[in-house]
């Protein structure tokens, strides 16, 4: 039976983007956050983490962070394919533009989920295995998948609009930094934070991903996380629409 086009594209995207260099960024960076921040801030952050060990508190945050990393991989795929001619080559092959886009999206989701599972496994070695319920696991995976689509769309939008390599890299670094540190990945949202930063936390979709994953990880899901996921889904639809629009109108190469 012939393999559908979409699966072939996902295979190609996965194979091309799992070279050692990419894996070090994709998994190594979050793993280093988990180990160094987890142990380093353990003594300082005990109280803020609500009585849990900071390493345990950080684990779901880092799992959520995989959605951002997966998104940047998705954006970089389109960027590199435009820059190095493969987008034009694929589009004179048996694929449609939509199939190509879906191929990137599904690959981003795979990377987000795979990375989160690796972080969970690493955390289990460091703090011991937790007890995640089946529903909790579903919420975790679903939210991370949704987050991967959101951040994948955001970075696709950037890579469809930006034409300079330096500009793309700078925007990517800025997005990772702001999204990562203005969220509940590393620390909880506290009323002691300046108002502007609190607002930024609330606007940041990674906060919703991190809160939902954390709630599921500690089996402490509340309706708030449910609403957050709904808002995230709405934001994802909007950003995905904008990304598709920009991508469909963009040049296939940078000649």
């Amino acid at each position: 039976m012939p393999i559908p086009n979409l699966l072939r594209l996902i295979y190609r995207n996965t194979r091309v983007n799992t070279d050692p260099g990419s894996l070090i960024i994709l998994l190594g960076l979050p793993a280093l956050y988990l180990v160094f921040f987890g142990f380093g801030f353990q003594s300082l952050a005990g109280a803020a983490a609500g009585g849990k060990s900071y390493l345990a508190y950080l684990t779901p945050g880092i799992m959520a962070f995989q959605a951002v990393m997966a998104g940047t991989v998705g954006g970089s795929m389109l960027w590199a394919d435009r820059r190095y001619g493969m987008l034009a080559q694929l589009l004179v092959g048996p694929f449609t533009r939509l199939q190509y886009l879906l191929g990137i999206m599904f690959t981003s989701v795979l990377f987000g989920l795979g990375g989160a599972v690796v972080m969970l496994a690493l955390a289990s070695l460091l703090v011991g295995a937790g007890t995640v319920t089946l529903i909790g696991a579903g919420v975790m995976l679903g939210t991370i998948a949704l987050g991967s689509i959101f951040f994948g769309s955001l970075m696709l939008l950037v890579s469809a609009l930006v034409k300079s390599n330096n500009a793309y890299n700078s925007i990517q670094i800025l997005v990772i930094f702001v999204v990562n540190f203005a969220s509940t990945v590393f620390y909880p949202l506290s009323s002691g934070l300046p108002l502007a930063i609190q607002v930024l936390f609330h606007l940041n979709p990674l906060t919703y991903v991190a809160d939902a994953v954390r709630g599921a990880y500690f089996s402490q899901l509340t309706p708030t996380e449910g609403w957050q996921v709904l808002v995230l889904a709405g934001e994802t639809v909007v950003v995905l629409y904008l990304a598709i629009r920009a991508y469909m109108r963009s040049d296939v190469s940078m000649e």
Binding site: R12, A80, Y84, G85, M86, A88, L91, P94
Partner: peptide, 15 residues
């Protein structure tokens, strides 16, 4: 596109 082959002028490679 299923029935044509194209060698474009510019480079096109996977890493």
């Amino acid at each position: 596109r299923r029935r044509i082959g194209v060698v474009q002028q510019g480079e096109s490679f996977d890493f």
